[in-house]
Structure formats: C-alpha cells, structure tokens
C-alpha cells in the first residue's frame, strides 16, 4: 500500500447532507441526531463497534433504510418517500455490500450491464463496452462470461465494485466490503478501492481496515450506540483521539 497520503482532492460542492437524522427499529433508537456533511471528492471512513449504526447510516443515504426524523439531502435532492426521487438518488449512488450480493443467475458481464440497460437505457453494445471498461479497471475482464459462483470472494467483490461503477455514480458507498473475505483476498479489494479513491470518487466506507483508513480517508468518523462520537482527520484520529470511548475502541482493534 502506498505510504504517501493520497492527495486531498475534496471540492466545495456539498454531495451529502444529513441533518439530525434519527431512526428507530421498532422501539429501538438506532440513529441519534446524525449530522454529516460530505463534499465532492471527499473520502470518509466510518468505524465503530458492531451495532453502532454505521451501516445503517450509509444505508439511509440510498434509502435502503428509511429514517424517521431529520433530513437527508443527496446531490441537492431531498430523500422523501417519493419514489421518483429515490430512484434518481439511487442512480447517482453506487453501493458495495459485505456479502457482494451479485446476481447468481447472471454472468459477470450481465451483472454489470443489467442496471445500465434497464435504468440508464443504454444500448447493449454500449453497456457491454462500459462493463468491460470497468472490469478491466478492477482487473478481471477475463472472467466476464463466468457466473459469480465460479469466482473467488475477492474476485466477486471486485465484480460488485465494477457493477456499481457501471452506473457512473457520483458517490460510492462501501458497507464492510472486506469483512466477508479470506485474509489473502482483502488486499486485492482494498487496492481496487484505493485506485478508485485516486480517481477522485466521493466515497463513504464502513470498514475495520485501519490501514486503509489511514492512507485513503480525509476524515474518519467514529460511531457508537447510534451517534457520532468523534470525527477527525486520520492523523489526528489515530494519534490524538479526543474521547475516551474512541481510545478504548482503537486499543481493541489496533492491538
């Protein structure tokens, strides 16, 4: 992994704004007053113990989860229950899941062309060209005609990244993209993500890979019990955590 800190490329345009977002699962209060601004090109890593609400937070951004109070504005569009707006936002926001969620009945190429063809109304030829372009970027163009079940975990996750990229999203969400992978496959996925970061993509990433966070993130957000406990630039975050809760957490995962 490159030691050199990635160039800070965050622009001024506000891509995501969350204003005192609250969410409940039944009676359980999972997100408490989340306030978060993400600018264009900014790369944010969310970390925290399991059940702290970090996945829920990013899943609210593309409305896989519904928030009950507060406002979420993505690229100038406010998320309400309006289906048209939800669709518009989902077109702009790509997501990569912990368990890949590739469609097992479609080939790698078909996985990648499905949404461009049905959502962006791209001709097949063009969609396939786009798909091959991104499969090349994640370094598995030779697997295009195979089915997801025939690939290794790392390869599947790279396909999932390519699939999301094929929609040319403005923002990418990563929900623990390396947690379900065997150790030797983590690096290939992280490398892909670093390359993506270098291209200036706006990224929100839930991960426990602190090395990745240190090199790639502009900002690290630490969450616990449904709220943002602390946020800071990586150097600050690792060397001088403000809250005692953060320090305990770092002590547990950094050994």
């Amino acid at each position: 992994m490159t030691e050199k800190k990635l160039e800070s490329a965050a622009g001024d345009k506000l891509m995501i704004r969350m204003e005192s977002v609250n969410k409940w699962y039944g009676e359980f209060h999972v997100l408490k007053d989340i306030n978060l601004d993400v600018r264009q090109g900014e790369r944010i890593v969310l970390c925290g113990p399991s059940g702290s609400g970090k996945s829920t937070t990013i899943r609210c951004i593309n409305r896989l989860e519904e928030h009950q109070a507060g406002r979420i504005i993505v690229d100038g569009v406010e998320l309400t229950s309006d289906l048209k707006q939800i669709e518009a936002i989902r077109r702009e926001v790509g997501m990569v899941f912990q368990h890949f969620n590739l469609f097992p009945h479609l080939t790698v190429l078909e996985n990648c062309t499905l949404a461009p063809m049905w959502v962006r109304h791209m001709p097949r030829r063009e969609a396939e060209a786009v798909a091959m372009h991104f499969l090349e970027r994640v370094r598995i163009p030779e697997q295009a005609l195979k089915y997801p079940g025939q690939l290794s975990g790392g390869q599947q996750q790279r396909v999932a990244i390519a699939r999301a990229l094929c929609m040319k999203p403005a923002i990418m969400l990563f929900d623990e993209p390396t947690s379900a992978l065997d150790p030797e496959m983590v690096k290939e996925v992280l490398d892909t993500m670093i390359e993506l970061a270098e291209s200036g993509m706006t990224m929100l990433c839930v991960t426990h890979e602190m090395g990745f966070a240190r090199t790639v993130a502009h900002r690290i957000i630490f969450m616990d019990r449904g709220e943002i406990v602390e946020q800071a630039a990586p150097d600050e975050f690792f060397s001088n955590p403000k809250s005692e809760r953060t320090r305990t957490f770092l002590g547990q995962i950094l050994h």
Partner: peptide, 18 residues
C-alpha cells in the same frame, strides 16, 4: 481526554407507533 456522554434513547415519534 473527555468522556463522551451518550444521548438518551428517545421514544419513536407518534403516528408510527402504537
């Protein structure tokens, strides 16, 4: 070093409970 004080759990807003 400060100790983070967690916010209390709030009731879910009405209309969606009960």
């Amino acid at each position: 070093m400060d100790t983070h004080i967690f916010k209390p759990d709030l009731k879910r807003p009405l209309l969606s409970v009960g």
